[in-house]
């Protein structure tokens, strides 16, 4: 299998996810959120810098709430990616640590992993960053309720 075919398949998959996402989540659309990667291992989303998302007009830095929405959406997608079959999920809790101020004018990316799925609950970790996930603006830990009963995945609940 050539790399070109892989890239082509990845591009098509990504376009399909973005279409699904755009049709299904109005607030993500309103924020301009894009899916860059979504798989069983992790999800990467982009929040483009935009004037209506600013939290402080003096600094031009994006509002913490927009970063919350991005981390929530990306963490939820990581759960979807990790589930053996699609099912409705709901955020149970989300803790966000703001590690340093974001820079005005720059897009924010989020990278989330779902590191455990039990019968009822999935657990996630995520970071928000500009260029380097190892130099994050914020980090998040989340739990998600799974709406329907799963088969045994990764051990006991």
């Amino acid at each position: 299998m050539s790399t070109d075919d892989d890239d082509q398949a990845r591009r098509e998959r990504r376009a399909q996810w973005n279409r699904m996402f755009a049709a299904n989540v109005p607030h993500n659309v309103a924020l301009g959120i894009e899916i860059l990667e979504l798989g069983a291992e992790h999800a990467v989303f982009r929040l483009p810098y935009a004037a209506h998302l600013i939290g402080n007009v003096e600094t031009g830095v994006l509002h913490g709430g927009a970063i919350t929405a991005l981390l929530d959406a990306c963490s939820g997608a990581a759960v979807f990616g990790a589930l053996p079959k699609p099912q409705p999920i709901a955020t149970l809790d989300l803790r966000i640590d703001y590690l340093r101020p974001g820079a005005a004018g720059k897009d924010i990316l989020a990278r989330a992993t779902c590191y455990r799925v039990t019968r009822n609950v999935a657990f996630t970790r995520a970071v928000a960053y500009h260029d380097d996930p190892d130099d994050p603006i914020a980090s998040a830990a989340g739990t998600f309720m799974l709406a329907t009963k799963l088969g045994k995945v990764g051990g006991t609940p």
Binding site: N24, V25, P26, H27, N28, V29, A30, L31, H63, G64, G65, A66, T68, A69, L70, L71, D72, A73, G76, P88, T91, L94, I96
Partner: peptide, 24 residues
Amino acid sequence: LPTNIGNPALPALHGGTLGALLES
């Protein structure tokens, strides 16, 4: 606002909007 919806099937507000409301 319609743009605050996260799940149109229920429908329900986006968790991020509630987080932003609480933080604000």
